[in-house]
Structure formats: structure tokens, C-alpha cells
């Protein structure tokens, strides 16, 4: 093996080594905005529960507290705004990772968090909560749906815990979505798939033909 080849071989080995080292920097992803089981396909390990027993009764603009418990190796709890009716409420926190300040459970792989939730409009809603964990080779998730019946007006709402009463300024304004919904995004994507891919193929074929013709015979 010549010196030149040895250098090339060492370079190739170094390149592959860098790829493997780079792949090792895997961390849990908590920035996603879709249901966790989109990628965390193992949904049979983690456990997720709350102190809500049946449908929670609430009043527009009046806070209630939901205590969420995740266990069996959970690394994060997330309330994704775009899922179920999650956008009908505001939350004191929507993401809690194991060991965060808001996590009141000291055990690793277990998260307990009290989330203060404020309904924004009246109606029957579902809050969808997710817990997730890694590693990349076995992505796990669990979901919990909490039904909430929100009524307008004044009065005492039923809380799921016994929190210190808190007074807030009621609001009946339904948040107006400023971004495209997931369904709209998917529709745009399908349109792009049907338009971009054949158009690109046609343009490249035509350009290729012109270039080959202009080049003439070999």
C-alpha cells in the first residue's frame, strides 16, 4: 500500500469515526409539536395519570389545578397546544422535564407536576397530555386525555384539587390562531408533492435533452 493510499485510508477512517461520534450526541426531543407517538412508537411502558376523576367542571377564566403524574421512566411531560382542545386553555407550564424545578417528584423517571389551567371559552373539551422518553433506539410515550366541561358566567367551579382560591381577570376571548393548522399544512404539502415533483422531473428532463443535443455526438 503506497503512502498516498495510506493517507486516503486514514482519512476515510477518520471521516467514518467522526460520523459515529456525531451520532452519539443523542438527546431527548422536547421541542416537537405533534403527538409524541408520532416518533415515540413504544406506547406500552410509560404511565401517565392525573388527579382528575371523570369530567372536570370548570368556568371560563377561572383557574383550576391539575396534578399530573408520569412514571416508569418518563423524561418529560408536555401539553402540546395544537393537540385535541389544548388551545382552549392556558397553562402555567406546558413542558416539564424530569428533575425540573416544577417536578415535585425527586425519583428519576418519575414526574409530578401541578399545572394551573385557565379555560378560555365555554364548551366540552379534551386536554391531551403526553409523557415521553428515549433512548433513540426505543422511543417511548404515553398519553392522557382529560375531559373538561367549561361553562361561562360566574360561580364556583369544581377544582380537581383543593388549591388556594385565586382570583384572575376572566376573559371570554377565544385565541385566534395566527399560524396554519396542521391539516392546512398537510394539504399544502400534498399540493407541493403533486406539483413540485413532476414539474421538477419535466424541467430537468427537458434541460438534460437540450444540453445533450447541444453537446453533439461524441
Amino acid at each position: 500500500m503506497g503512502r498516498h493510499h495510506r493517507t486516503m485510508l486514514l482519512g476515510a477512517i477518520a471521516f467514518i469515526a467522526i460520523l459515529f461520534i456525531g451520532a452519539g450526541f443523542a438527546i431527548a426531543d422536547v421541542d416537537q409539536n405533534s403527538a409524541c407517538d408520532t416518533c415515540h412508537t413504544n406506547t406500552s411502558v410509560l404511565t401517565l395519570g392525573s388527579n382528575a376523576t371523570g369530567t372536570v367542571d370548570a368556568i371560563v377564566g377561572e383557574q383550576f389545578i391539575l396534578v399530573i403524574d408520569a412514571a416508569a421512566g418518563s423524561e418529560a411531560i408536555k401539553i402540546v397546544t395544537g393537540l385535541a382542545n389544548n388551545n382552549q386553555f392556558t397553562y402555567s407550564t406546558q413542558l416539564v422535564e424530569d428533575g425540573d424545578g416544577e417536578d415535585t417528584n425527586d425519583n428519576t423517571g418519575e414526574i409530578t407536576v401541578a399545572v394551573t389551567i385557565t379555560p378560555q371559552s365555554a364548551g366540552s373539551f379534551t386536554i391531551q397530555i403526553w409523557a415521553a422518553s428515549g433512548p433513540v433506539s426505543d422511543l417511548k410515550a404515553a398519553s392522557l386525555d382529560v375531559s373538561v366541561n367549561v361553562v361561562a358566567g360566574t360561580g364556583t367551579g369544581t377544582t380537581t384539587t383543593s388549591p388556594t382560591p385565586t382570583t384572575t381577570t376572566p376573559t371570554t376571548t377565544t385565541p385566534t390562531p395566527t399560524t396554519l393548522s396542521e391539516e392546512e399544512r398537510k394539504e399544502i404539502w400534498y399540493t407541493q408533492m403533486y406539483v413540485f415533483t413532476p414539474v421538477t422531473a419535466i424541467i430537468l428532463s427537458l434541460v438534460g435533452l437540450v444540453i445533450i443535443r447541444r453537446a453533439g455526438p461524441q
Binding site: 407517538d37 408520532t38 416518533c39 396542521e182 399544512r185 404539502w189 413540485f196 415533483t197 430537468l204
Partner: peptide, 23 residues
């Protein structure tokens, strides 16, 4: 699962375009 994820949607579409360019 792929079509529900914006990253994956982008990857699918532009992987096809990249394939066409490479061909």
C-alpha cells in the same frame, strides 16, 4: 406518523426532488 410531522414531510418531498436532481 411521517405525514403528521413537519420535519418528515419536508424530508419526504425534498428527498424526492434531490433524487430527481441526482438522476
Amino acid at each position: 406518523a411521517l405525514e403528521n410531522n413537519a420535519y418528515m414531510r419536508f424530508k419526504i418531498l425534498w428527498s424526492i426532488i434531490a433524487t430527481e436532481i441526482y438522476i
